[in-house]
Design a binder for these strands. Structure first.
Length: 788
RNA sequence: GGGCGGAUAGCUCAGCCGGGAGAGCGCGGCCCUUACAAGGCCGAGGGCGCAGGUUCGAUCCCUGCUCCGCCCACCA
């Protein structure tokens, strides 16, 4: 029997947390067995950047997964939670480049091999951080299956996927206009370009007889035509003509074409066509055979084709051209203009549209399948509203540019033979040209980092091999993620999973909110409003922190996290701790077998009934991914029913020696209810529940292995709830009078209750309970009158 | 330009199928009552963004509007 004196009256999380995680891990409780006959339940973790560290988003995301996983494990499922990390191509390369810059060096100084070597070193150095932090959070991942997107196995999966898509004609190379980041020196997918509204100037420039407006006069040097709307009668006579246009470099000839893409209402209704530097113009140019003229280079400077402007930065060039045009009297007017510019999502440099040869995936046929999967309910998106967003994007999907001019990542498995000009895509590195035997050089680009993460749900399970893990755990049960990577990641996994596995990668997609600060701002280092999850865990304990996240995880768009919420739930942990202390301190002489033979009191029946309801609500909440409902149900039960009422009521039989049977039964109810409440709470607060559970009478090695409480309909006792409700109302009414009349709790009130019918009997029967809870002397008189 | 969220107590937010307006924090009062002052008990506080409509009845459904936030988009 535990000595209550030994239990501190405040819950101290640090030592408890340090004790149990190693225990669970060492006993192999997180380990999943592909050969188990139990029903599978699988989640793959959204892999964090390997060199990152835990932020609020991770904390929320992984807490929710851990809640599900722990609950399912207790519920008897064969649970697999696959952990791992992402190489995060551009992000990680960017970090290492910055490290080099601090040493006054560039990646070119090192050369490709040495640079990649250096990134690997950085990965080895910092890669353990986020894993340790996830463990600190209590994440019960199967660490024996930890994966990294650049592991040999996953790299093989990447190559297999690439080769197969290429064989099927879905991967191809194309000269197309791309989003180029002159800072990062790489192409970006459409998704990697952020839009930002900026103030700019709208220059109205004379083009011979016509005038048109542009915000980018420097691209004028790349103009190869003019375009108007086909139905625009103002300009109909120019269509098809070659105009002589005086410009900064003398007179140039330009053909006028008619194209639907031109909006006659906007500007002057005339557009200059710069196929080399604008996506719309590129399309217009293709339709009308206008040549591409590249005047801005990959470095963001004007090319030789820009004549006297060659070598100038693109923005300097803009100034210069405007001056020159003005001098020539070619600027009609300038208006202020606000428009969206494209920025690199990594470094915020203004993206330059450029024509270059890149690798693409024709995702349209894959998207069709992925759309069907959601339509037919084979993938369930929760909350429902996101399905619309998903569909909209999928239905308007464009080819996915997958090559990146980076060094860190999966090298594209394509080889070029300069001798005969052939291209070879292969699973195994070829040593010579299969056609002519000549030397080969491998494509220098790497793949978009999302290509490998798109394979994650099956590559981590051993694909392309046919493994027992794939058989047992694919499709996974649910994917838990935030909406900001719905397109980047979820959509790609859906497409690639259906393509390669012939089945959806996950049955449910639960999309949770983004964590913001108390003011609703996105947390960022530059704003200085970052709340560090590790600090929260240090300050309030992991359980309190986790519970806060779960309690706030309502299905909105964002969560505003304020520290006092965490404090509030720290207090909840403390409350639970003290409930347990109270129970443990009163277990002398407890004998479960004998106690069971004593019929339950009203209070016993009531709390058991309330427990059954709480169990039902928690289960319903978790089943529907309404985590906050689940959290609130268990919170409400533990604090406001078990602690506030039942424990107080229990003191009557507990502290009086006159009815040993009653006392025994009360002990039994306390133990039973608390033990069940701990199990109910365990997925949310794994550490404190394990600690207390181990101290209570229990069966089994760990609460992790104990069954999750079930809601038995028979356990709901309507009559007991109704009767107890009446007693509670009377008690509250008496306390209310005490409060209003400012009568201290030391004074025992004399109260006469005018109760009719069965209420009188009820109150008589439970007089001792009412008197103890209300600290009053009770008289029940159906005919009492209000004193004057 | 399209789409999606939000607008409920001083603050942060719950309110699933239309009938009770709720929680946490904060605030006021009384209490260190042998589980807990990180606590107990009691309490104050809300025209549920605005205007219409449907209904016996609307915070909840419909229409329009106003603010805030976000996403997508080839108006140069």
């Amino acid at each position: 029997m535990s000595q209550p004196e030994q239990i501190p009256d405040r819950y101290e999380p640090a030592s408890v947390e340090a004790r149990w995680y190693p225990f669970w891990e060492a006993r192999g409780f997180f380990h999943a067995d592909a050969a188990s006959p139990k029903k599978p339940y699988a989640i793959v973790i959204p892999p964090p950047n390997v060199t990152g560290s835990l932020h609020m988003g991770h904390a929320l995301n992984n807490t929710l997964q851990d809640v599900l996983v722990r609950m399912k494990r207790m519920d008897g499922f064969n649970v697999l939670w696959v952990p791992g990390t992402d190489h995060a191509g551009i992000a990680t390369q960017f970090v290492v480049e910055r490290q080099l810059a601090a040493e006054g060096r560039t990646k070119e100084d090192l050369g490709r091999d040495a640079f990649v070597e250096r990134v690997w070193r950085w990965k080895e150095e910092s890669g353990g951080t986020i894993i340790r932090q996830l463990k600190r959070l209590g994440a019960s991942c199967d660490w024996s299956r930890e994966r990294f997107t650049m592991d040999p196995g996953l790299s093989r999966a990447v190559r297999e996927a690439f080769v197969r898509l290429h064989e099927d004609g879905l991967i191809y190379r194309d000269d197309y206009i791309v989003n180029w980041c002159p800072r990062c020196q790489t192409v970006l997918s459409d998704l990697e370009v952020e839009r930002e509204e900026r103030d700019a100037q709208f220059y109205y420039i004379r083009y011979g007889p016509l005038t048109l407006a542009t915000v980018r006069p420097e691209t004028k040097l790349g103009d190869t035509g003019l375009a108007v709307h086909p139905k625009d009668s103002r300009y109909a006579r120019y269509v098809g003509q070659e105009l002589e246009v005086p410009s900064v470099e003398g007179t140039v000839r330009m053909r006028v074409v008619a194209d639907e893409a031109v909006d006659p209402e906007f500007g002057t209704g005339v557009v200059k066509v710069t196929p080399g530097h604008d996506p719309v113009d590129f399309e217009i140019g293709r339709r009308h055979g206008l040549p591409v003229r590249t005047v801005i280079g990959f470095d963001g400077r004007m090319t030789a084709l820009a004549g006297k402007y060659a070598g100038l930065d693109r923005f300097e060039c803009r100034q210069r051209i405007v001056e020159d045009l003005r001098a020539l009297g070619l600027i009609e007017r300038i208006e202020p203009y606000r428009h969206a510019v494209g920025l690199c999502y990594r470094c915020k440099t203004v993206v330059e549209p450029l024509v270059s040869k890149q690798w693409y995936v024709n995702v349209q046929p894959l998207a069709a399948e992925a759309i069907r999967a959601v339509r037919e309910g084979r993938i369930r998106i929760i909350p429902r509203g996101w399905a619309k967003t998903y569909h909209h994007w999928m239905e308007n999907i464009r080819p996915w540019c997958i090559s990146r001019q980076l060094w860190w990542g999966h090298r594209i498995p394509a080889w070029y033979c300069d001798a005969d000009g052939t291209v070879h895509v292969a699973r195994a590195d070829p040593s010579a040209c299969p056609r002519c035997g000549g030397p080969l050089r491998q494509d220098t680009d790497v793949l978009d980092t999302w290509f490998s993460s798109g394979l994650w749900p099956f590559s981590t399970l051993g694909w392309p091999d046919d493994t027992p893990e794939l058989k047992t755990f694919y499709p996974t049960s649910v994917l838990v993620t935030a909406f900001d990577i719905l397109f980047f990641w979820v959509a790609r996994m859906a497409m690639l999973g259906l393509r390669f596995m012939g089945d959806v990668p996950f049955r449910d997609v639960y999309i949770h909110a983004l964590v913001r600060d108390a003011e609703g701002q996105k947390m960022s280092k530059s704003r200085g409003n970052v709340i560090d999850p590790l600090v929260m865990m240090d300050r309030y304990g992991t359980d309190a922190f986790r519970f806060t996240l779960v309690a706030l995880a309502a299905q909105g768009r964002d969560i505003r996290l304020a520290e006092d919420r965490v404090e509030g739930y720290r207090n909840f942990a403390n409350k639970l701790w003290n409930v347990a202390r109270m129970v443990l301190a009163n277990l002398d002489g407890y004998d479960a077998a004998r106690a069971r033979r004593v019929p339950p009191s009203l209070a016993d029946r009531w709390i058991l009934s309330r427990l059954a309801r709480a169990v039902g609500e928690v289960r319903a909440g978790l089943r529907r991914y309404r985590f906050n409902d689940a959290a609130s149900a268990v919170y409400q039960f533990v604090w406001h029913e078990l602690a506030d009422w039942y424990l107080e009521a229990a003191k009557v039989p507990l502290y009086r020696a006159d009815d040993p049977a009653r006392r025994l039964r009360t002990q039994h109810t306390l133990v039973t209810v608390l033990e069940a409440a701990l199990r109910l709470l365990h997925p949310f607060m794994p550490f404190i529940t394990e600690e207390l559970w181990q101290r209570l009478p229990h069966r089994g090695e760990s609460i992790m292995l104990a069954p999750y409480p079930r809601a038995r309909r028979r356990a709901v006792d309507e009559e007991a709830e109704r009767r107890m409700r009446t007693i509670m109302d009377v008690v509250t009414a008496i306390r209310n009078i005490r409060g209003e009349m400012r009568i201290g709790p030391g004074v025992t009130l004399s109260v006469t209750v005018r109760a009719g019918g069965d209420h009188a009997g009820l109150l008589e029967e439970h007089r001792a309970l009412v008197e103890a809870l209300a600290r009053a002397r009770l008289a029940v008189d159906p005919r009492a009158v209000r004193p004057a």
